[in-house]
Write a protein that binds this DNA or RNA. Sequence first.
DNA 1: CCATGTTTTGACCAACTGGTAAAATCACGC
DNA 2: GCGTGATTTTACCAGTTGGTCAAAACATGG
Lengths: 233, 233
Amino acid sequence: MSQGIACPKFLTDRKGGCSLLFARHCFPWDDEFMSKPETPIQKKNRSAIMNAGLEVFSKFGFRGSTLDQIALESGLSKPNILYYFKSKEVIYTTLLGELLTDWLKPVRDIDPDGDPIAEILGYAAHKMEMSQNYPRQSRLYANEIIQGAPRISNVLTSELHEVVDKFAQLIKSWSKKGLIRDVDPHHLIFSIWAMTQHYADFDFQVRAVLGHDDPFPKGEKHVEDMLRQMLTV
Amino acid sequence: MSQGIACPKFLTDRKGGCSLLFARHCFPWDDEFMSKPETPIQKKNRSAIMNAGLEVFSKFGFRGSTLDQIALESGLSKPNILYYFKSKEVIYTTLLGELLTDWLKPVRDIDPDGDPIAEILGYAAHKMEMSQNYPRQSRLYANEIIQGAPRISNVLTSELHEVVDKFAQLIKSWSKKGLIRDVDPHHLIFSIWAMTQHYADFDFQVRAVLGHDDPFPKGEKHVEDMLRQMLTV
DNA sequence: CCATGTTTTGACCAACTGGTAAAATCACGC
DNA sequence: GCGTGATTTTACCAGTTGGTCAAAACATGG
């Protein structure tokens, strides 16, 4: 409920996002009732802001980013941005929410009845593609974790923890059946994350060291090779 | 040469650091001549500032960190900090300089005549220890690379590139002699960096997912296992 | 073309930012 | 215990920051 301000009574209820995060975009006057669909203008401007926010936050983290930068990048004025999102923080957490959804899904989608090596390699390949196609998301996430995950620690210790434990159990069961080598499942998962996200987060270093090559084709092959060696009995 | 200001004519010439970075600590009045040894007070305060700077910059990056935070963390006043380092930027680049030195050295120290697998595993173990004992340095570096390495891109494309190429050649030669599997040397190096630094940069996530265990003993074993599988013919 | 709600803007604010200048305090060899 | 240089503090500044507000401009269906 808002005071004095122009107050369209709707709410954009695109509830996707990780459950623990209010990944719903917010208007200042949002309340829980009465929603209207987005107008084209809203859609356009919100996505421009999301894109600009991603661009800026993924580089400089929350503290290092400014609304002015986001305004410049999105082509909107600062007050106009605050018309669509009630604060810098909301832009940031909205981005994080969408990101977490995208990241948790493929872990959940692993098929316990599939071929173990194919499933694990498939997951790694998927993460690699995300590093290639959405490097900014990866960097945004890295930034948030590096500074201690102040806004998502609850997600890490609940949903992520849970989903990873389930995956780890699955891996363990595959090992026990002799379908893959006996590996530490949690640390296997960490090394998949590490190797794949490295190509997004350290993209600049990778390219600087490599010269002019596109790192991805060879990188993907290498990661696959590495995991196959690790997992094949 | 400085104007008007109290002007002790010395310079702390601890030239360590990566050649391309002025890793020398700076007094505002530093000039290239006439150096005096550090007084105990200087030593204490500088190292307090370095430590506080590392603490803050490694979390929030350059843009996201403030002199006030560093002042608070170090227990010195803001102007007093600027008495020892002439700007925020100098604190930051000094830290980066020291860090790059520490990181380049172990790559250079790899023995071409040693046992290939022992050398590579030894390097990985060393990086793992650095992640365990100096996680803030790792995060500082990650922060810098993520935002595009604006202050060290020249080091990446020259010294790092060079040193890595040499290491890669060595690995290639080991492969050719049949001492290790045929692997992509550059991407092998990347995966070593990725897996080891992950335990520092994503420490928070690792611990959140794992619960209360210390991740390092098992992590180190896992990485060793992984590399051994990858390299053994 | 009018009315209503939507979108955008310009002016503004208090808090914070990196940094300066000069005075005040301190440490220590003589 | 004095003097000199080293260190620290106090007061300050101009620019930036996230955010507010009311007014203006716009869109659109009737």
